[in-house]
Design a protein around this nucleic acid. Structure first.
Length: 196
DNA sequence: CGGATTTGACCCGCGC
DNA sequence: GCGCGGGTCAAATCCG
């Protein structure tokens, strides 16, 4: 299993213990740039700090990205949330999401173990894609982090995982990640992780 | 038997 | 206003 990402920093923190989902385990604003540093777009072009802040500034950028099927990684920072009213009527409201990160992962497994416990709550077929999209919620108490998992429509050997929200708890199996080692090829933009 | 998964129905936003 | 597509709900079903 390999994690591909771009990293524009020529002198990255050589911390070998890392997993994409752990990036979301903090609400610190300073980590936003770090998050974006690890994003990799479908076309292979790295979109780091600039593209991240761009997508958070205006809603028009969200519309542009969501309507452009070839650039799904320039992801939106707003989402629809359900609000239950007194009469049990459920209203939906668009809310800003503080953290949303999409990872492109080469893996045969769609539902890889990222240390958190997820409960599947939906599955949808996606237009123009032969592969279904699965929806998961974190099972942690009071934790409303969600993730979407789908196979790349162009290359089904890749899995697209979108994490949304910030965990309000530690990973149930933090120690598990001590086994993840970083495989550094010398080119950070094309480095990969492997699970051991 | 309880928790997880499946899956059809439903809701809402958006474009036409 | 209508249809489409994405996201969520919840009852039914599965499984350990």
């Amino acid at each position: 299993m390999e994690y591909y990402f771009g990293n524009p920093n020529p002198n990255p923190d050589p911390n070998p213990y890392f997993h994409p989902s752990t990036l979301l385990n903090t609400a610190s604003p300073s980590t936003e740039f770090m998050l974006s540093d690890y994003l990799m777009l479908e076309d292979g072009v790295e979109h780091h700090q600039e593209s991240w802040s761009q997508s958070t500034e205006t809603e028009s950028s969200e519309k542009a990205s969501s309507s452009d099927a070839t650039h799904g990684f320039a992801d939106a920072t707003s989402t629809i949330v359900n609000i239950k009213c007194k009469n049990n009527e459920i209203k939906r409201k668009k809310e800003e999401v503080s953290q949303r990160v999409t990872f492109k992962t080469r893996s045969q497994l769609e539902n890889m173990d990222d240390g958190y416990k997820w409960r599947k709550y939906g599955k949808k077929t996606v237009k123009n894609s032969p592969n279904p999209r699965n929806y998961y919620k974190c099972s942690g108490e009071g934790c409303c982090v969600k993730k979407r998992v789908e196979r790349d429509r162009d290359d089904s050997s890749y899995v697209l995982t979108t994490y949304e929200g910030v965990h309000n708890h530690e990973s149930p199996s933090t120690s598990y990640y001590s086994q993840i080692s970083l495989v550094h090829s010398g080119d950070w933009a094309n480095s990969s992780f492997s699970m051991q």
